[in-house]
Amino acid sequence: MMSSKQLALLSIPVLLLFYCNPKTLLTGVTHTSDVDSVLFYQQNPVADPFLDELHSNHGNSARLTTLLLPPPPPPPPDYREIQGFRIQLFAGTDSISALSVQNKVNNDTDDPVYLIHEGGLFKIQVGDYPYRIDADNMKLLLNSKGYDGAWVAKRMIHVPSDSSFVDSNMVIPPPPPPVSEQQPKPEAVTNQITDSTTAQPVQTKFKIQIMVTADELKAQQLQLDLENKFSIDTYYEQAGNIYKVFIGRFQTRADAEVLLKNVRENGYPDAWLVY
């Protein structure tokens, strides 16, 4: 029988051998895992909706749609053109001189200054004046600032496209006389209006002048012709020694211009709008 001392001595190498696991050294089986074997071997595939969907017909196609719209029409210009007046300061074949004048006059007025190239000439024109009297005042002002050659040109001008804006912001003068380059003085215009013999409705702002004549009979005949042709209020007015034949009375320029176009297209191409 071994003593307890011998047992103790024997147990030391046995424990050491167990710890060192000499079997592994001898057989070459070096690796064993201490994790649960269930982690290595799958009994059944792991169920997963996403992976299952990969092998179905779902999730294989997609379609997106959108509508392409044509671009909107360009916005209407914020102005429209009407008959009116500008002050012309320069006309010449030299664009550099025109630009020089434009720069100078830009410093002398807040009104719009236009550089226009027409008829082979570069022109510098100032302002958009529906009424002759305003144009004349501006001409005088420019004359006083050294623009001696300024003169009033009758032409198409720009006014805000909203006619009510024009109307509401303008000081409405009494109806002016027929416009012409030979009647520049505002005082004369006022006098002539005062001489007007035919009463007009207070609200009339625009009317279409067909003709000016010194022969009253001729004016009467034209008035009858116009009445028959257009069935619209026609009349003539005496201004000094002459008679002016008109058609229509309008509150707004737009309405007047509709008739103006109609009149011009039906036998009176020289008709014009007056205020």
Partner: peptide, 21 residues
């Protein structure tokens, strides 16, 4: 395609198809 200019209202389609897995 979204920035192209069309003359009339046009339907633009994007489609994707998985052909093979």
């Amino acid at each position: 395609y979204l920035n192209q200019i069309v003359q009339d209202t046009t339907e633009l389609i994007f489609e994707v198809h998985i052909l093979k897995r």
